[in-house]
Nucleic acid binder design. Structure first.
Length: 926
DNA sequence: TATGACTGCCC
DNA sequence: ATTCTGC
DNA sequence: GCAGAATGGGCAGTCATA
């Protein structure tokens, strides 16, 4: 069969033809002139009208094969025919004659007659590649005339109310359709510039419209303004004080369209086929197989399979699946299709519950439960490795990624934007459970996953769920814009998920499996499953930042092939915290003192560096490219354009490890200044010019991992440092000064010196150590000390989560305001107490509760804690107006009571001192 | 238009 | 970030 | 000693809504 691939556009490799590719290609069919299809290709096949529209959208030279509709032509030995697609003016489908096979690619299309687009035509074809923008059954559009009538009424009523109606629709296609709809109803359309321009081209090509005028700012009264959606909230519209804005789009059938588009009304007039028409079209074309594209491609393909039509969503991720199925000329196993066919043949309901052993995702969840059930690490590994061995090469990467609590690989920058709030709403929506029942379940668990299980249990109609479909769910969640759209997707899935499946979907969404197994054990399971050395698996995962790809390599026995290379960030080496210079020194003595002789005399020197308070960063630089990655392998290049500019001045190709700090000579900047630059959007150069001026940064390099093609991971720190010191640095780059030490006293002195330089603390490193990515080994240590401690009183306590579900483990505490005598909250902390102490305090607080709010209770202020922290500063978070950085409990002060706690005034003194230190001098870097 | 809730990602 | 706990 | 689990503050961006 004809091979079909997808890579930012449909690609037919045997014909070397691209269909609507996003990027410039040598030879492509362009279905219509919307911007997302316009790229500077070398040679294109287009309809006559599309060619004309393209001229205005993308001037420039290219070879154009302009084909009439309905006539078979030969281009580069390829027999093909264009058919009208009915989407917009000039939009075409491409029908290919390939030997004794035929293929129809729809591009964007609609079946309903449009007033400004040619009527769609079709032919039967063996392979149908179709757009499925509205491929969910809830997208059914009302009759066109009904919608047009609504739009006209909206315009009339708005004008009668003395306001200006504004209709939003794409300037090419939709706007002209609206224009035609207003013909003969006695309204005068006024066109936004871009709409006007496009409409004039339509007219040159023979289309005629009713009378309209071009936009003039002082002449809008009584007119109907037609603008592209991008004009909403623009300066142009803001100048019209009294207006009502309506979005004209198929998405208007979504109940929340008005909010989503920030408009007063929304009307479902679309240039795309709705769900019913998509189904009808497949019936017309009678294809042997269907590939779906855009929108709800996966869901629609599944629906088609349920109707007995072989159908697959075309996405990048499906390449392997398609390739294999095309090569084998066989269908991949798919329980969805399987089950639905049975249901159909017995005339039963599609939604009839089927035995859940059919659900691949349920099988995954059950393995998770088995792993959770045993506390033994080796047993967990065994359970997982047995399961991994059963998986197909397509499922394996997905499942291993899930077992690290992620939907996407670590190095994959995609996020879901689905958190606790969306999940809770969705669970309620999917089950129609009432608020009281829901909250009673949630309160009992304090674990979203368990809550999901109990809420969904017996309240859903489970249908089988394949691993590939689960991956598609997460991809759709990522793609969906806004919490409402995401919630809808998730709710649809929950309503057909078993309780166990829902629980594991939630676990992945929250990034927290809580089954006593994380990445480290997954690596071990992969090694065990495919009988490859563990260190190779760890190495590969570290280099790839992708446990799924690592597993795939292990399956093919290719893990050893992973290599450190430019622009593939690796996890950084971490340091183990130690409380004192003496304890640090002891580590090195213990290691070196093998012969029992005098350690001090024989100890080689150890390396000391200041610990900078910035963000850990890995800089990759080649002759023509620079990238910066964060500790979690996020690409943060865009946040620091000035560093990127400077980094082009290196003489070498390299990977350096270091810290980006807020830094300016003669000025004390802190982590908080730096943080202002972190989440910022990377587009908009002027924003950055300003940010860079506000918060200048420096890159302090302290390690060299790769140089001109050579990996230095397996060379000693001493050697790496020597090589780093030879690198010529551009401005804004510095090298962290390294000094040697041979005693605890020297470490202590260096620590004090680092503090005097206003750095966070001291790093202590074994000069002979190799670079061990991702591990907090015994080769690097860090020494930090608290700024101060405060004696505070606990005023509220909360139930914890997970294994702390039944104890009051999280304490809110307060200081005394001397002026009023009242208690003012200053922070929260849990860490620092042992389980026994938490249990004891739980009992105490239960008996000394002032107000019980469920998971949270106010308690009698009689437990005094000594709380340590690293800095204290003004904040609106707590009533005291101060907040602590890294608060932790140092001790329960049983010797103190509420009358002897520290005061707000004292806390303010600490904060003032903290702030003053910050401002006094410039820090020293190198 | 302004604000707060939510999310993700730094420490 | 910090800290504790079970293997 | 390691890996896992449960917890802190603050910032920017997005979306929903007053």
């Amino acid at each position: 069969m004809i091979e079909v691939r997808y890579e930012r556009g449909v690609y037919l490799p045997q014909q070397n033809l691209w269909l609507d590719p996003w990027d410039a290609k040598p030879f492509a069919f362009i279905s219509h002139a919307h911007n997302d299809h316009v790229a500077p290709h070398e040679e294109i096949i287009v309809s006559q009208r599309t060619a004309r529209l393209l001229k205005s959208r993308l001037p420039g030279r290219r070879i154009e094969h302009i084909l009439p509709f309905g006539e078979k032509r030969r281009v580069h030995g390829l027999d093909l025919m264009l058919l009208p697609a009915g989407h917009i003016f000039g939009s075409a489908q491409c029908f290919l004659f390939l030997g004794n096979e035929t293929l129809l690619y729809t591009g964007d299309f609609k079946l309903r007659p449009g007033k400004s687009a040619e009527q769609v035509q079709w032919r039967e074809a063996d392979t149908l590649i179709m757009e499925t923008t509205f491929g969910l059954s809830r997208y059914r559009f009302p009759p066109t005339q009904q919608v047009v009538d609504q739009i006209v009424s909206f315009c009339r009523e708005t004008i009668e109310a003395g306001e200006v109606p504004v209709l939003l629709g794409y300037s090419l296609g939709k706007a002209q359709e609206i224009l035609c709809s207003l013909d003969g109803v006695g309204l005068t359309p006024m066109l936004h510039g871009s709409v006007y321009q496009m409409t004039r081209i339509y007219e040159q090509l023979g289309q005629s419209f009713c009378k309209y005028v071009r936009y003039r700012a002082n002449d809008v009264a009584g007119k109907v303004l037609i603008c592209p959606p991008s004009a909403n909230r623009s300066h142009m519209l803001e100048r019209i004080p009294r207006k009502r804005v309506a979005m004209i789009s198929g998405w208007a059938v979504d109940p929340n369209a008005v909010y989503r588009y920030q408009v007063d009304a929304a009307f479902p007039l679309s240039d795309h086929a709705d769900y019913d028409d998509l189904i009808r079209y497949v019936d017309f074309v009678r294809p042997r197989r269907v590939f779906t594209l855009h929108g709800f491609a996966a869901a629609f393909a599944c629906d088609l399979r349920a109707r007995g039509v072989e159908a697959w969503a075309l996405t990048e991720q499906n390449q392997m699946e398609l390739h294999l199925s095309a090569a084998d000329n066989a269908l991949p196993v798919d329980p969805c299709a399987e089950v639905s066919r049975t249901a159909e043949s017995t005339q039963g309901s599609f939604h009839k519950q089927v035995s859940d052993t059919r659900s691949e995702f349920l099988a995954f969840a059950k393995v998770g439960e088995a792993i959770a059930a045993t506390p033994a690490k080796l047993e967990k590994i065994r359970l997982l490795s047995d399961y991994l061995r059963e998986l197909t090469s397509e499922q394996l990467p997905v499942i291993t990624t899930y077992f690290t609590g992620r939907a996407f690989a670590q190095s994959d920058p995609r996020t879901l934007q689905v958190g606790w709030s969306v999940i809770v709403r969705t669970l309620q929506g999917a089950t129609k459970i009432d608020d009281a029942a829901f909250h009673s379940i949630a309160a009992r668990h304090g674990d979203t996953g368990k809550t999901a299980f109990e809420v969904l249990d017996a309240r859903t109609t489970p249908r089988p769920f394949t691993i590939v479909e689960s991956r598609e769910l997460f991809e759709s969640l990522h793609r969906a814009r806004g919490p409402l759209a995401k919630a809808q997707l998730l709710q649809d899935r929950f309503s057909i998920s078993s309780a166990r499946e829902g629980q594991y979907i939630v676990k992945i969404l929250t990034g927290d499996l809580r089954i006593g197994l994380r990445e480290g054990l997954v690596e071990e399971a992969i090694a065990k499953a495919f009988d490859v050395p563990l260190d190779q698996v760890k190495q590969a995962n570290m280099l790839l930042g992708d446990i799924g790809e690592t597993a795939a390599l292990a399956l093919r026995n290719e893990v050893h092939q992973a290599q450190l290379s430019l622009f593939r960030p690796i996890k950084c080496m971490l340091a183990t915290p130690l409380p004192s210079a003496e304890s640090v020194w002891q580590r090195f003595v213990d290691v070196g003192d093998v012969d029992g002789g005098s350690a001090l005399a024989t100890q080689p020197a150890i390396f000391l560096e200041d610990k900078f308070d910035g963000i850990r960063a890995q800089l990759h630089r080649s002759a023509d490219r620079v990238e910066i990655y964060s500790r979690d392998l996020r690409r943060i290049t865009g946040q620091f354009p000035e560093l990127v500019d400077q980094a082009t001045n290196f003489q070498e190709k390299l990977i350096v490890d270091g810290e980006i700090i807020a830094f300016e000579e003669g000025r004390r900047l802190t982590f908080f200044d730096l943080q202002k630059r972190l989440g910022r959007k990377s587009d908009g150069e002027d924003l950055f010019a300003r940010a860079a001026a506000d918060v200048p940064v420096a890159f302090v390099a302290f390690d060299l991992l790769w140089l001109n093609g050579e990996s230095l991971l397996r060379t000693s720190l001493r050697e790496r440092r020597a090589r780093l010191s030879e690198v010529r640095l551009p401005p804004q780059f510095q090298i962290a000064k390294v000094v040697s030490a041979r005693s605890a006293a020297e470490i202590e002195q260096a620590f004090r010196q680092a503090r005097r330089h206003l750095n966070e603390g001291l790093m202590i490193k074994d000069p002979e150590s190799l670079y061990l990515p991702g591990t907090r080994g015994m080769f690097w240590f860090k020494l930090k000390k608290e700024l101060a401690t405060l004696d505070v009183v606990v005023v509220a306590a909360e139930l914890g989560h997970g294994k702390r579900n039944n104890v009051l483990s999280d304490y809110t505490f307060a200081v005394r305001d001397e002026t009023t005598g009242g208690l003012l909250r200053i922070g929260k902390a849990y860490s620092g107490l042992t389980d026994a102490e938490i249990a004891e305090l739980t009992e105490h607080f239960k008996q000394n509760t002032l107000a019980d709010h469920g998971r949270y209770r106010e308690v009698k202020p009689d437990i005094v804690l000594e709380v340590a922290f690293n800095s204290i500063q003004p904040s609106a978070r707590h009533a005291s107006g101060l907040a602590l950085r890294f608060p932790r409990i140092k001790a329960i002060r049983r010797d103190k009571n509420v009358d002897s706690i520290d005061t707000l005034q004292y806390a303010h003194e600490l904060a003032a001192r903290d702030a003053q230190i910050q401002q006094s001098v410039s820090p020293e870097v190198a």
